[in-house]
């Protein structure tokens, strides 16, 4: 087994005055693997992934536990130190690519700004880098995308711009919070393929949160199943999907309608 890139140890997260959102969760993410966290809404999967990068919604605090990334405990990091990690070593994409972008500024402006917050390069160089990134992510008319406002692009395009932005600094770890849930099936297929290519071409490790079991089964090497803040089971994808041990996992899998496909064409 590959080296661990990220290790989560006994993590407990609580929102104030409420019950725990994540309780005593431990698992690890090997280098260059894709790990999917699955579960129903309210199972704490989004809270968990956001806590890694220190972006919990208001009121969430890590009560106990450790998040080890490249042999450093991120829980002990100050805001300043986290700021250096974010975008450089760990980046994140969200469910709705469109709302992640500022609707009043052109894509190009935002992209250049993002790059220049990490690298001390000129605007022109940053713009070139941005176009190069967009082209690599199969947005062939990159120039048009750069000059467009987010509302001029479709949901799938926005999501790919967000992925391009996240990938600019070539992070070791990409956190993806429901990246395909707001998209149509055909666009979902495009984004899923994109993420598979990221891992193959750049060796990026991806931690993915999804409620789509099909996407998790296709993409992931390891699957983590969560329920009501607790880790139900985790392990290699084949094992979890084909031989689930926990009744909850079995229940979750049996709820997914399967497409009966004969010989197509």
């Amino acid at each position: 087994m590959n080296e661990k890139l990220l290790e989560i140890k006994n993590l407990t997260i609580r929102y104030h005055n409420q019950k725990t959102a994540v309780e005593d969760v431990s698992f690890n993410v090997p280098q260059q693997s894709i790990v999917a966290i699955v579960g129903e809404s309210g199972s704490g999967k989004s809270t968990l992934i956001r806590s890694i990068i220190g972006l919990m919604t208001s009121g969430g605090t890590i009560e106990s536990g450790e998040i080890w990334f490249q042999e450093k405990n991120l829980v002990t990091y100050s805001n300043q130190e986290m700021h250096e990690i974010r975008g450089n070593k760990i980046s994140m994409i969200f469910q709705d690519g469109g709302s992640y972008l500022d609707s009043k500024k052109k894509i190009g402006y935002q992209f250049v700004e993002t790059i220049r917050s990490h690298l001390k390069i000129s605007k022109i160089a940053a713009r070139e880098k941005a176009i190069e990134m967009l082209k690599q992510l199969c947005l062939c008319d990159a120039e048009r995308v750069m000059n467009a406002y987010p509302f001029m692009l479709s949901g799938g395009m926005c999501q790919r711009v967000a992925i391009a932005m996240g990938m600019t600094m070539n992070p070791q770890l990409l956190l993806a919070d429901e990246p395909t849930s707001a998209l149509d099936v055909t666009i979902q297929a495009q984004v899923v393929r994109q993420m598979a290519e990221l891992r193959n071409d750049y060796g990026t490790t991806i931690l993915l949160v999804t409620h789509n079991m099909g996407v998790a089964a296709y993409l992931a090497d390891y699957v983590v199943v969560m329920k009501a803040g607790q880790l139900v089971e985790w392990g290699a994808c084949d094992q979890i999907i084909d031989h689930p041990q926990d009744p909850y996992t079995r229940q979750l899998l049996s709820a997914v309608p399967e497409l009966k496909v004969g010989c197509v064409g």
Binding site: S154, G156, M157, V185, T186, I187, Q188, A189, Q190, V192, R193, A196, N212, M213, G214, V215, A217, Y218, C237, I241, D242, L253, V256, E258, L259, V261, V264, G265
Partner: peptide, 25 residues
């Protein structure tokens, strides 16, 4: 219809299968 069918990720499907992406919007 075939493209739509291709885009469905099946839980117990073939995980090695190539995704034939329907390009464009």
């Amino acid at each position: 219809t075939q493209e739509l069918l291709n885009s469905v990720f099946s839980v117990h499907g073939d995980r090695k299968k190539e995704i034939n992406v329907l390009f464009g919007e």
